[in-house]
Simulated scan of single mutants.
Amino acid sequence: MTTGGLHALQAWLAHEADERDLELVCAEHPDPSRGELDRTVVRLSTCARDVAAHELVELLLVGAGRVSVRLDGCSDPAAAAAHLDPVMRMLRAGCIDRVTVETDLPDDAATNARRTVLDADRLPVSRRRLFGVSADVARNLPVPDEDPHARLVSAIRALVPAATPELTELDSPSLRLAARGCVACGVCVQACPPRALRIQHGSGGADIAISTLLQTPATCTGCRSCIDLCPSGVLEAVGPWPWSELLVDREVGVTTLTTASCERCKASFPTTSGERCCPTCTYRRANPFGSTLPPGFTMPGAPSTAR
């Protein structure tokens, strides 16, 4: 368990018999005890601006009926609201109204009795559960070490049964890629941390393949590692994928080209005229004893070619 996250709260909710309506407050909140009595108040170990989007959404899957993030006691409510805005827009686009962000204390909160405030990292365990006599409730918890983007996508898929029109218009973190002039070197595939890219080689005839660079939008995190490390400099982002594309598992073609397998090094290389060797091996065959000299340069003692 990592201090500052919501894993301990998720584990606690997963074993509660009934769903809880949660009210999350920042660690620096001076007095969150006043408010609606039917909510379970949980003080975070950090500010709301540091809450991970995937952990917030996952609360709805492990036992939270509703989640309210209260910013009236936050030291920087504008930053916290800006941090939470992308996930809130995404939830609204998916017609999920069980998470809210509250910037003001309710008008009647001062008249309510004081409530117990729980600590997100040290939550109470009932005696019945401690002694094993409570009902055995255990909802499935997300895998803590899984990629945060994958966890967020998985949670949204569980909450949104089908894409809504709003999700087709809402930008996701995933990048739509294009690669005019791709040489199918495969560096982008190796550079992608979440493995959102792969090259598929299909038969195109004798010693020729139709190679396609494929992307899985749901897996892409938008880190741009593939773009930054493309040795040819041809891979680019042409815009984000909409959130609706992340709700399904599918591959899309980034580019397609004709390739051949080099008869010397066996590497794939683009070809349009039936070459048998890749450019590197072709150059090495033409210059078996080293590199050619730069234009205009002559070795000392070599005869001059000037006229």
Rank of each mutant, 00 (worst) to 15 (best):
R114Q: 15
R114F: 11
R114M: 09
R114Y: 12
R115K: 13
R115S: 15
R115F: 11
R115Q: 15
T116F: 02
T116E: 14
T116I: 07
T116Y: 04
T116H: 07
T116N: 08
T116M: 06
V117G: 12
V117S: 13
V117M: 09
V117D: 05
V117L: 09
L118S: 14
L118C: 11
L118Y: 15
L118M: 13
L118I: 10
D119A: 09
D119Y: 07
D119C: 11
A120W: 01
A120M: 06
A120Y: 04
R122S: 11
R122N: 14
R122G: 12
L123I: 08
L123S: 13
L123A: 09
L123C: 12
P124A: 02
P124T: 04
P124W: 01
V125A: 06
V125L: 13
V125G: 10
V125E: 14
V125Q: 10
S126D: 11
S126Q: 05
S126N: 04
S126L: 05
S126T: 15
S126E: 09
R127T: 00
R127N: 05
R127D: 02
R127M: 05
R128D: 07
R128H: 08
R128P: 02
R128W: 03
R129H: 14
R129I: 01
R129K: 09
L130F: 08
L130D: 02
F131P: 00
F131R: 09
F131N: 02
G132S: 01
G132L: 00
G132P: 00
G132A: 03
V133M: 04
V133I: 14
V133G: 04
V133F: 00
S134Y: 04
S134A: 15
S134N: 13
S134M: 04
S134E: 13
S134H: 12
A135W: 00
A135R: 11
A135I: 00
D136G: 01
D136C: 01
D136K: 08
D136M: 00
D136V: 06
V137M: 08
V137W: 07
V137H: 12
V137Q: 06
V137G: 03
A138H: 15
R139W: 06
R139M: 02
R139Q: 09
N140F: 00
N140G: 08
N140D: 08
N140P: 05
N140W: 02
N140C: 01
N140R: 14
N140L: 05
N140K: 11
L141I: 09
L141Q: 12
L141F: 10
L141W: 10
L141S: 09
L141D: 07
L141N: 09
L141R: 07
P142D: 05
P142K: 03
P142T: 03
P142C: 05
V143N: 14
V143C: 06
P144Q: 09
P144L: 00
D145K: 06
D145V: 05
D145P: 01
D145S: 15
D145R: 10
D145H: 13
D145L: 05
E146Q: 13
E146N: 04
E146R: 13
E146H: 09
E146V: 03
E146F: 01
